[in-house]
Each structure stands twice: as C-alpha cells, then as structure tokens.
C-alpha cells in the first residue's frame, strides 16, 4: 500500500530477560516496518511480547531485560538512526522519546502519578521537548485537553488522575502523548480496562486525531475485534514470534496460520448465535521457561504434524500474495534456522 520509506523499521529484534532462574526469550526475532500515516496493528494473547517490543523500541526496558540483537531504525528527515545502538539514558534517546515516538502506556489507570496533578505531568512533557515557559506550556496542555474532548479542561488540569473517570484519564493520556506532535504513536492496549461505550469513543478519537495530525500509530491489543476497526496492516504474535502478517482484510477474511484462525474463531461476531460459548483456543500459553521446540504453537495446534512442526521454527514466508505466515503447512522447512 505504501511505497514510501518506512518511518520505523525493526529488524530481527530479540529481547531477553536475564533472571536468576534462567533466560526468558521475550521477543525472539521480530521484524516489521511502519510507514508514515499507517496504523500498524499488533495482536496476540497476553504475555506474547507486545509490550516488551514497544519498550525495546523506546529503550525503556526495565532490568533484567535487554535487547540482545536486532536493529530499530528510525527515519529522521531522510537519515536513519539505529535506536538499539543509542545509550538508553543518553540525551539523544531521551529527545526521541515523547517527541518523535510517544507512548500511551498499557495501564492508563496508574500511568499518572497519584500525588502530582495531571496538568503537572503534561506540562512537564511539553516543556521537555518544546522551548516554552510554564504559562505557554499550560496553554498548549489546555488546547490538547480540548482537542481530546475533555470537558472543563481548565479545572481538569489541576486535578489528580484518581479524580478522573477511566475514559477521561485515557483521554488525558492521549493528550499528553500527542502534545509534542510525535510522528509515531504507540498505543499499548489503550482500551483495555475501559467499558465498551467509552472504548468505542476512545477508538474513534484516536482515528480522528490520527487523520488530523498525520501520525503513524502502532496499535497493540489482544482483541482482534478492535484491530479490525483500527489497523491497516496487522501482525499476529505468539510467544515472542510473528505468526502471520498482512493487510487487515487478508488477515480477517483469509487467515492462513492456524493460530490466527483460532484467534478469529474466538471473537464474537454479529452472525454467531448469542449465548453460545465461544470456542476458545485449547491448551494454555506455555511458561516462558518452558518454550516448546519447533513451532511455538504446536502443543495447541489442531493441525500439528508430529516430527515436523516440533523440529524447526518455521520462518515467516509469503503466502497468497499479500500476507506471510510462519507455518509448515505452507512450506516445508528443511533448513534449520
């Protein structure tokens, strides 16, 4: 769809957590490109490495987590820099965080300090990246609050996050993230823990702002239904690996990977009979210390082929023209990775 140069290009990213009990391979070689103005969706069950990938991009992984391999190329005015090579606490990286790439964190409920006002924290974000005085920064914050549809913005700025409703808190978070006009916005499960009506409003707001500000978004969720409304292009993750990727229509109408198919079966649709239990994916996500050999999905896969699927990790290969899947059903693997 987009033939421009990617805004962000992640190549073979690997993140490990070095625990006393052993090494957790949280992200195991993930690659993707995000183009300007694109909404790039990442979907997968909880624990598959979505948040860790985003923290790696921003270089805010908490110890004992570390990027052990891979490139994170950010295109800035025609030149690219590898974020993975920057010092996480250095000035250059800090200038990118919040200004070039902003994050709407996974837990909007507790992402504001409870003892500082919401305004304090947003004004802080603005003044970190824009050479303005406190008064001007407050004006910008007010503008942002109006943009995201917070009623009585003047008063809300001086309130604490716990005085705001869930929906308002999330709007305030979005206002903060967009306050420095980032070129890329990472929204990590922005609608989890919010009621359905508010969720729909927030999604519409994000869509609207994305069009107005021409921001690219990496939209993360465990909910395929939400992805369908938001994303242009989708990547399906499982246990730190990409299972399938492609344009949103292809993923929804012609899923190739058994995991994607299973995920799709488990979401409610207008056609399904009400009050019938939705099929769930059998089995549970393996413990990180106990990764299956070969295809990570094989213990739960209905199409598992013994002696084949558990031997080698199938690489992500193009199937059916527009999308790619990592599954032996579509190509035999002889070459070990």
């Amino acid at each position: 769809m987009n033939h421009a140069t990617p805004l962000l290009s992640v190549h073979n990213l690997q993140v490990q957590f070095f625990m006393d009990e052993g090494i957790v391979q949280a992200v195991d070689g993930v690659s993707f490109d995000v183009f300007p103005r694109q909404v790039f969706g990442i979907v997968g069950e909880s624990g598959c490495g979505k948040s860790v990938t985003m923290k790696a991009i921003l270089q805010i992984l908490e110890p004992p987590g570390r990027i052990v391999k891979g490139e994170i190329l950010l295109n800035r005015n025609g030149s690219t820099i590898d974020l993975a090579k920057l010092n996480p606490n250095g000035k250059e990286m800090r200038d990118i965080r919040g200004a070039q790439i902003a994050l709407i964190p996974q837990e909007p409920m507790s992402s504001f300090s409870p003892v500082h006002t919401v305004g304090d924290q947003i004004i802080e974000a603005i003044r970190l990246h824009q050479p303005v005085h406190a008064r001007a920064a407050r004006q910008i914050a007010l503008e942002m609050f109006r943009d995201v549809g917070i009623p009585m913005p003047e008063q809300r700025l001086d309130e604490y996050a716990w005085q705001l409703s869930g929906g308002l808190r999330q709007r305030a978070m979005i206002a903060m993230a967009l306050s420095c006009h980032p070129r890329l916005l990472i929204a990590d499960e922005p609608t989890t823990a919010i009621d359905v009506t508010t969720q729909a409003q927030i999604l519409r707001l994000l869509r609207k702002l994305q069009e107005e500000h021409h921001t690219a978004i990496i939209f993360i969720t465990h909910d395929l239904g939400v992805i369908a409304q938001m994303a242009d292009y989708v990547q399906v993750m499982y246990l730190g690996l990409v299972m399938e990727e492609g344009p949103v229509d292809a993923i929804f109408h012609a899923p190739k990977h058994p995991y994607t198919q299973a995920l799709l079966r488990s979401i409610p649709s207008v056609h399904s009979t009400p009050r019938v239990n939705l099929p769930t994916i059998s089995g549970s996500i393996p413990h990180p210390f106990n990764r299956p050999s070969g295809c990570p999905f094989h213990p739960r896969c209905p199409q598992f082929i013994a002696g084949k699927c558990d031997k080698h990790i199938p690489p992500l290969r193009s199937v059916g023209g527009v999308q790619a899947a990592a599954c032996v059903l579509y190509h035999d693997v002889e070459v070990p990775r």
């Binding site: 965080r97 902003a102 409920m109 992402s111 300090s113 409870p114 802080e124 970190l128």
Partner: peptide
C-alpha cells in the same frame, strides 16, 4: 506504570 510513562516522555 507512572514511572514507565515518565520515562517514555523523555524525562
């Protein structure tokens, strides 16, 4: 999360 958020805005 509020620390992660502060880190993510470049403080």
């Amino acid at each position: 999360p509020y620390v992660v958020a502060a880190r993510a805005r470049g403080l």
